[in-house]
Design a protein around this nucleic acid. Sequence first.
DNA 1: ATCCAGGAATTTT
DNA 2: AAAATTCATGGA
Length: 270
Amino acid sequence: MQNLYTPDFNLDATLNSGQIFRYYEKGNGYVISHGNHIFYTEQKGNNIHWEGTPTKEWLSNFFALNKNLKEMKKEWEHDKNLMEAIDKNWGLRVLRQEPWECTIAFICSSQSNIPKIKKNMNLIAQHFGTPKILSNIKGYEFPKIKSINNEELLKKCSTGFRAKWIVNTSNNINPKIYEEAKTTTYERAKTMLKQLHGIGDKVADCILLFALDFPEAFPVDVWVERVMKQNYKHLRTKKLTEIATFARKHYGTHAGWAQQYLFHNARTKR
DNA sequence: ATCCAGGAATTTT
DNA sequence: AAAATTCATGGA
């Protein structure tokens, strides 16, 4: 296995915080399928070991190792509740995903839950994607853009009423949308994504944050809504978009990372 | 404005 | 054990 130095990194918290869905536990680590890549990885202290298709460069980018968590934490020191969430899950990182897979995952996420999204994504990869087997590591490449276009088959993936959104988006998406979105402003990129079927404010923010390098995007789902309203009483009467706007100002350029800590902490505590 | 779509997970009774 | 509720988008 190859080795990668990963300071301030928590593989368990990162994978289990509802960002990616095609992975399973194996041995002391995980088998992860994402985009075209399949690999096994496990963490030992400040290093991860891995084997599979990715290069070291791809993995470093995927795990967003260039981001400085200690600096982010400093910017958020005024927020006591966030400090608690961070300390409990130190090393949780926002991954840099392959945008198409991320798009489909979060269209599936609407009115759903993490175990079910995992089921949807694994079935979609099995039905529409290509199997990839590296000795004892088994996974699927995620189907290419435009190829997820059979509504009947999508319904067999338990996607329910989202099946037609996926077909519609798959057929109508401009493959260059991601490159274009990356080079424009947060607001404009969000507007572009929301043209697609099944993508509203929350799903758009997830794609911006998890795949398009907009760390300020602050997706507000019920968990985050609850925790924000609890921590900031003046938000109790506000709408979701107002909460998101407040949070982007309040937490700054990496508000989305703060969101990821708040979300994971809210879901795992008790 | 309000209701519903499909469905596993979660919470309440 | 069984019943009610959860959950984000778009269309009626």
